[in-house]
């Protein structure tokens, strides 16, 4: 449904030029939910602009439904719903007026009442957008994206500013859309959101996709960690063990159960109490943090960039 190859986006020229997207490849297949994660300034929104056809790439190619999102905008738009990162709603219109305006631009719209119910804003229909909370404004934005009954949804941080209950409600709505066959590309700062919704995840850092794959592929590619305070004895010969300056031992392993059994067996034999013992499987959060901290090497070796499901 979406194919991108060697996408680049450069802002400005000459000495002030800034390369926000640095040659990324990605594929999104029909019916899947693809999450684009990354630190602030990683290039997610710039990538979205290229996929949505709001900007032309400086280099590279992108196709949505097999069409060029800039050149073939008129053919693509009726099948796409978009929610931008922020703003975009006229402050002085009421919720209903905003949705009626948006509905008037759609070629195959559902009713305003339908989308209001889906985003649970029926009771706020006559309130001006300026008087809504940030979370409610996000839900109006989502309602606009749904009005045209899209086959593909671009959602840029869809639940930012929502309270926990509204977030869950939005997750359920997105899950229902997925069940109905709607393809989604979303960005989020909430890793639990990506874990709950996404079939595949890509993590961007400094304009590049550093890892890409299913949640399982990404997590399995990273080592688990066992940590404990150094007992002051010679340690068992476990691979990947390191001792930091604070005398804290860290063992990085892809065989958490085996290494942990071995370590505990060794401690039992010596009747040793391992103080501060912690064992943690890899998680999306740990992968993300390693990338954010610039530990690209360990992350990129595991799952190749641009991998597809």
């Amino acid at each position: 449904m979406i194919e991108a190859r060697g996408l680049r986006r450069v802002y400005g020229e000459g000495a002030t030029a800034y390369e926000a997207v640095r040659g990324i490849d990605l594929d999104v297949t029909e019916g899947e939910v693809f999450a684009l994660l990354g630190t602030n300034g990683a290039g997610k929104t710039s990538t979205f602009d290229l996929l949505e056809g709001l900007a032309s790439p400086t280099a590279g190619e992108v196709a949505v439904f097999g069409l060029d999102p800039v050149r073939d905008r008129r053919q693509i738009r009726p099948r796409v719903g978009t929610m931008l990162q922020s703003g975009g709603l006229p402050a002085e219109l009421t919720v209903t007026e905003t949705l009626e305006m948006w509905r008037g631009t759609c070629s195959n719209p559902t009713t305003v009442e339908d989308v209001l119910e889906r985003v649970r804003l029926t009771d706020r229909a006559d309130v001006r957008v300026a008087a809504l909370s940030g979370g409610e404004q996000r839900r109006v934005d989502l309602a606009c994206a749904l009005l045209g009954q899209p086959k593909l949804l671009f959602l840029d941080e869809p639940t930012t500013g929502l309270d926990p209950e509204s977030r869950r409600g939005t997750w359920q709505l997105l899950a229902d859309l997925k069940s109905a066959g709607v393809t989604m590309v979303l960005t989020t700062h909430y890793l639990d959101e990506a874990e709950a919704l996404a079939d595949r995840v890509a993590i961007m850092h400094r304009g590049e996709i550093v890892v890409c794959g299913t949640l399982r592929e990404i997590v399995d590619s990273q080592p688990a960690r066992i940590t404990f305070d150094h007992p002051g004895l010679a340690l068992p010969p476990l691979r990947g063990a390191e001792v930091d300056a604070g005398a804290r031992v860290t063992i990085s392993t892809h065989d958490l159960q085996g290494h942990l059994s071995e370590l505990l067996g060794w401690a039992d034999d010596l009747r040793l109490q391992l103080s501060g013992l912690e064992a943690r499987a890899a998680s999306l959060e740990s992968v993300f943090l390693r990338i954010a901290e610039g530990d690209r090497t360990s992350a990129t070796t595991a799952v190749p960039m641009g991998a597809t499901a």
């Binding site: 097999g66 009726p78 002085e92 009626e100 008037g104 759609c106």
Partner: peptide, 26 residues
Amino acid sequence: MTTTTTTTPTPSRMRPLVALANAEYL
């Protein structure tokens, strides 16, 4: 990359302008 040709419903060409102009008027 492949190129596909699809047909989409064609609304009145002026309908979006009327909707946007009405919102601007409000």
